[in-house]
C-alpha cells in the first residue's frame, strides 16, 4: 500500500460574475508553481511531477481543474449554455485561482492551451508571475480537423477526442501512460473538448503580443515534443523567436502531453525549465 503526497481540495472563486467551485491539487513546499492542464483533460496530467519528491522538495506544485473539467463543476445553468472558452475567461480564471490561493508571483507552467494562456499572461499580466514554462505552446494553431466532430448526439465525443489526440502521443510513450493520458479525454464532458478547441484554434490575439513580453522581468521557456502534430517544433520555434529572450527546448521522443505520456523522459526537461525560473532553485537533478 502507498499513499501519495498529493492532496486535493476545493476553492470557490468568482469568474465572469458568478461563483465557480474549483478543484485543485498540490504537493511540495517552497516556490509556488501553478500547472495548467491541456484542452479536454484535467489535473491528473501532472500526477507524476507532483509525486516527484526531488522536485517537490523545493517547489510547491499546484494544479487545478478548469471549470467544466475534471472535478470542477460547470457553472450553474450550464445545461442551457454552449461551452466556448475565451482568452478573457481563461485569464480571469487563472488570476482568480492565484488570488484565491494567496500565491505570490508563482511560476506558471501550462501545456497546450495552458501554454498558450501562459504566454498571454506573460504579455498581459507579467506582474502576477515570476516566470513562464510554456509546454507544447505556440502563437496560434488553426484546426486541422473539424472541432464540431467532438460534440454530437450520435457519437461519443470523448472516444473520438481520444482517438484524435492519440495522433499527438509519441510512439516512445509507455503503453500504460499512453492510455492513462487518453482516458482523461474519454472522460471529458460533452462539448468540453470542442469548447476548449474553439479557444485554441480560433483566437489569434497572442501573435501581436509576443514581442511585448519582457523576458528580462519574467523568463519564458518553451518546451516542445517532436511528435506533437498540433504544436510542432516549427510552431514552437516560430513562437520563441517572436519573444525576445525566450528559450526553447525540443524533446525528440515526446508528443503533446509530455508530463503525462512519458514522465520519465519529460522530467529532465521540466527540471531544466524550473532552473531557468527565478526564485528557489530546483534541487532535483
Amino acid at each position: 500500500m502507498s499513499i501519495e503526497p498529493i492532496t486535493g481540495r476545493y476553492l470557490t472563486v468568482t469568474i465572469e460574475g458568478a461563483a465557480r467551485r474549483i478543484y485543485f491539487e498540490e504537493a511540495g513546499q517552497g516556490r509556488p508553481v501553478v500547472c495548467l492542464h491541456t484542452a479536454g483533460a484535467d489535473t491528473r496530467q501532472w500526477r507524476h511531477l507532483m509525486n516527484d519528491a526531488e522536485i517537490t522538495e523545493s517547489n510547491r506544485l499546484i494544479a487545478f481543474d478548469m471549470p467544466w473539467h475534471g472535478k470542477s463543476l460547470p457553472p450553474e445553468g450550464f445545461e442551457t449554455q454552449e461551452y466556448l472558452l475565451t482568452t478573457e475567461a481563461y485569464i480571469e480564471t487563472v488570476l482568480a485561482v492565484i488570488e484565491g490561493l494567496g500565491l505570490d508571483r508563482p511560476v506558471l507552467a501550462g501545456c497546450s492551451m495552458g501554454g498558450r494562456i501562459a504566454l498571454q499572461l506573460a504579455a498581459l499580466h507579467p506582474d502576477r508571475f515570476s516566470g513562464f514554462i510554456a509546454i507544447e505552446a505556440s502563437d496560434f494553431q488553426p484546426a486541422w480537423y473539424d472541432i464540431d466532430w467532438f460534440h454530437r448526439p450520435d457519437a461519443h465525443g470523448g472516444e473520438m477526442g481520444a482517438a484524435l489526440v492519440s495522433a499527438n502521443i509519441s510512439p516512445y510513450a509507455p503503453n500504460a501512460e499512453r492510455w492513462n493520458t487518453l482516458w482523461m479525454f474519454m472522460q471529458s464532458g460533452p462539448g468540453v473538448f470542442r469548447g476548449d478547441l474553439s479557444f485554441y484554434t480560433k483566437d489569434d490575439s497572442l501573435i501581436p503580443r509576443l514581442p511585448t513580453i519582457d523576458t528580462g522581468a519574467t523568463p519564458v521557456h518553451i518546451i516542445v515534443g517532436a511528435y506533437d502534430l498540433t504544436c510542432t517544433p516549427d510552431d514552437a520555434e516560430r513562437t520563441a523567436k517572436a519573444i525576445p529572450g525566450a528559450t526553447l527546448a525540443v524533446m525528440d521522443e515526446l508528443g503533446h502531453f509530455p508530463m503525462s505520456e512519458h514522465p520519465e523522459v519529460f522530467r529532465p526537461f521540466f527540471v531544466d525549465a524550473l532552473e531557468k525560473m527565478p526564485g528557489t532553485a530546483a534541487k532535483a537533478a
Binding site: Y145, S166, A167, A226, L229
Partner: peptide, 16 residues
C-alpha cells in the same frame, strides 16, 4: 515501423 518518425506515426500525421 515499430517506432515511426514524427508524422509517420499516425494516419492523421500522414495527412498533416
Amino acid at each position: 515501423q515499430a517506432r515511426p518518425e514524427p508524422g509517420f506515426h499516425d494516419v492523421f500525421g500522414l495527412v498533416k
